[in-house]
Design a protein around this nucleic acid. Structure first.
Lengths: 358, 358
DNA sequence: TTGTAAGCGTTATCAC
DNA sequence: GTGATAACGCTTACAA
């Protein structure tokens, strides 16, 4: 029974299906006014002032007839769909859901809907998806798959499609971006690692064509440099994809290569860190007694794994909301200069990082 | 450079912005044919057969001018947006991303886009969201928030909007649904619990207005009955929301109520189970030495927590794909009878379930 | 095989 | 204040 009273007055469509949809013209003739008047009333158009009596009658009629505006027709006329597109690599990657939630929440407040597309890490799919969305279905795009040089960003400029990059940015900030402040997060993490007595540090990084991966590595190096340390060549490894399996393989390689394991493995993200933990265990190392591991992201449940993972928590839903704000700004001011917004993350110290007696 | 050759022939819009968008009429006059001919060529309309020479010329022109079809205009004309809506409670709930991925993947293959909406567990938001989507923006809806009696399902019928329920179903199958086979999953789990020697079993269930919650509880009872067991009133608890916090509170209450803890707590899902683990620990109980815990869902990382959680893995992406298939079927055959599809889950035995010596 | 013309439902811009 | 009218860009009978 909840909410059913909201539909009071709605004429149930005759059981003989497919009741023709009520349109503005129907309301107009029922209320004895012109369609344009109805339109003005329903959109509360501030220009054409309508007498309250007519407005009342029209609203009444609209409700009685069960009028539902046709968003497609309105879009064709106005050139705006009140919809924005979000492109992500893989919605199962735990960084995306909180971002999407932030985006969606903010957009909904402003009357926008959100269409989502997965690329499955395929640049071709990404381009294709963008084209589809750009074909007038969306008013703008939030790109969560941005590479340092990204053809999609360029294409968006060609087409004049408002675009904001989220989570990553392009090399020369060709478009506005809202990112995590990876460098500062990494520095805090490095400070903690060093403060725990670690000196022999191995790193599992990711391909440097992603700004996140690059910022994390450079932040890490900067942090170490501040302590007079560095990452020797043979302690630096790279994964192609940032998942558990890749982390496991990289850590295995890492542990094979030298007889003595490092004191700590700093992974480019939590999934890779988890893979590293598994690889260490597989070789009989205890974590964190024999070797410490750090991640990045603080994805759900990493505080519950064994051992709880030391990591850096991005403020993902905030990043999402900011990117939505940013896109909405661009819709109203398309010519504005691209802006880079950095959202600060927070260090999460947990048991996977042990203190080393010196 | 990848893929840029695909845009060969595209005339870069003059730097003097806002190049008017190329439309079918432009191609028509450029190619010296009628717009309708262009339309037929571009949609590869099988009826109006076009001479290959004209077709060739038109395609050529379209490419040269950088034509991009206007999806909105086409939708207004055809009445189809090639878009479907998915409504979920909270995209951060880990059950949804794999489902969305399955849905999106399948729909994309068939040329559909996916718009997603979060309700935040608010029935009013759910109804609102459905109305928005139904206002001609989508060809159909996949509902992931279905309650046993769901006004949205009824509303979809009124409006003639094709709708498929995913993950849950309505009481009397008013619409097609693709669900996990909760009952059979629970039975398998109960068999395992009993086989491990447990007899004193506490249950944290969820409100029975969700079909999943109901099916799990009835499956659990049926499973126990098969072993001549039951859940006494004082061992049955209910959480309002299925998250960690609620699980923690329920388990605390449970442990307070009787001096002796049960041998095992079977939680309605993994998050609740994790809350239960935390509550047990907070009261000084070791898991699984002093008390066993089981979950349901096998969300990411529950195999990595301490202790690894015994649970049941739904086949979520398959559920997603099937629901997409089901919706597409309904688009072509709207009058078909509602179908219930059950997808079988798999038991995941892990350390959180200990063997009890008898 | 191709052209003609009539919309799809809405809103913007005029007039009155 | 309200009405008339013309698009928005595309598709599709129907004609030729």
């Amino acid at each position: 029974m909840t909410g059913s009273d909201e539909r009071n007055g709605t004429v149930a469509p005759a059981p003989g299906r497919k009741a023709r949809r009520v349109k503005i013209a129907d309301i107009a003739s029922a209320a004895g006014v012109h369609p344009s008047t109805v339109s003005r009333v329903l959109r509360a158009d501030p220009r054409g002032r309508i007498s309250e009596s007519v407005a009342e009658r029209v609203r009444e009629m609209a409700k009685t007839l069960g009028y539902r505006p046709d968003a497609v027709a309105a879009s064709l006329r106005t050139g705006s769909t009140q919809t924005i597109g979000v492109i992500v690599h893989d919605i199962e990657d735990p960084v995306y859901p909180p971002i999407l939630r932030g985006i969606e929440q903010r957009l909904l407040e402003r009357g926008f809907m959100t269409v989502v597309g997965n690329t499955g890490y395929d640049p071709h799919a990404e381009a294709e998806m963008f084209e589809q969305m750009a074909n007038r279905m969306v008013d703008g795009v939030i790109l969560g798959t941005t590479r340092l040089q990204d053809p999609v960003v360029q294409r968006a400029q060609e087409l004049g499609v408002p675009l904001v990059s989220v989570l990553r940015s392009t090399e020369h900030l060709e478009c506005s971006a809202v990112v995590n402040d990876c460098a500062s997060g990494m520095r805090e993490l490095v400070d903690a690692v060093v403060a725990h007595g670690h000196r022999d540090i191995a790193v599992i990084a990711a391909p440097q064509d992603l700004s996140t991966a690059r910022d994390r590595l450079s932040g890490l190096r900067a942090g170490l440099a501040a302590h007079g340390l560095e990452v020797p060549e043979e302690r630096l490894f790279t994964v192609e994809r940032m998942d558990v399996e890749a982390g496991r393989r990289a850590a295995s390689t890492l542990l094979e290569r030298r007889p003595d394991p490092p004191q700590v493995i700093m992974a480019v993200n939590d999934l890779v860190a988890i893979g590293a933990i598994q690889a260490c265990r597989a070789r009989g190392l205890r974590v964190p007694d024999d070797i410490s591991i750090t991640g990045y992201n603080d994805i759900p449940l990493v505080d519950m794994i064994d051992p709880p993972l030391t990591t850096v928590a991005m403020n993902l839903s905030e990043i999402g909301m900011r990117s939505a704000d940013c896109l909405l700004d661009r819709l109203s001011a398309p010519e504005a200069e691209p802006q880079l917004t950095r959202v600060r993350p927070e260090l999460r110290l947990r048991e996977s990082l042990a203190t080393i007696g010196r």
